[in-house]
């Protein structure tokens, strides 16, 4: 399956991926509305790590043997049969944080705006290319077959 990979040496830490991820997962999908009107804001589903000149964006690796699926107490975390993506059915999630405990990449986030749920990269199911990849100005993120 196609996955998102990062080329650390090209990442500038501009965080455009973060912004576009947030917008893509907002209600309006419009940047100004998402930032100015939709409170509390949705979370970007990736993490940008930064230390000095080094930075990179990290999002769900959609593991083959996914620890989050194994650990999920409710069955909310599962695999999309078609795309192979690991997805969280937020309706079934109760926010027990078992997935956060076992995700070795630390890319599952706590969304506590309303009902507590775990939230994570869904590979942008409605797009051809995940927005973080599409909007990266320096091709530090790529979407490729394994």
């Amino acid at each position: 399956m196609k996955k998102i990979y990062v080329k650390e040496e090209y990442c500038m830490g501009c965080r455009l991926c973060e912004i576009h991820c947030l917008v893509a997962h907002s209600k309006s999908k419009k940047i100004i509305k998402a930032y100015k009107e939709e409170f509390p804001r949705v979370l970007p589903r990736l993490i940008v790590e930064e230390k000095g000149p080094i930075s990179f964006a990290l999002q769900c690796r959609h593991c083959e043997e996914a620890p989050c699926i194994e650990a999920c107490l409710t069955g909310a975390m599962g695999r999309d049969k078609k795309s192979g993506a690991v997805t969280c059915d937020e309706d079934r999630c109760v926010g027990c944080w078992m997935c956060i405990m076992v995700c070795p990449f630390g890319v599952i986030l706590r969304d506590e705006r309303e009902k507590k749920v775990a939230t994570k990269c869904d590979l942008c199911p409605d797009e051809d290319i995940p927005v973080c990849v599409a909007k990266c100005p320096n091709e530090a993120l790529v979407y490729e077959e394994e």
């Binding site: 990979y5 990062v6 993490i47 790590e49 990179f56 990290l58």
Partner: peptide, 21 residues
């Protein structure tokens, strides 16, 4: 608070999260 892979030695990081490199 901001602990992450960036603090982990590069070889390990590469193995874990940057498979392209």
């Amino acid at each position: 608070e901001n602990f992450g892979y960036i603090y982990v030695p590069k070889e390990f990081r590469a193995k874990m999260v940057l498979p392209l490199e």
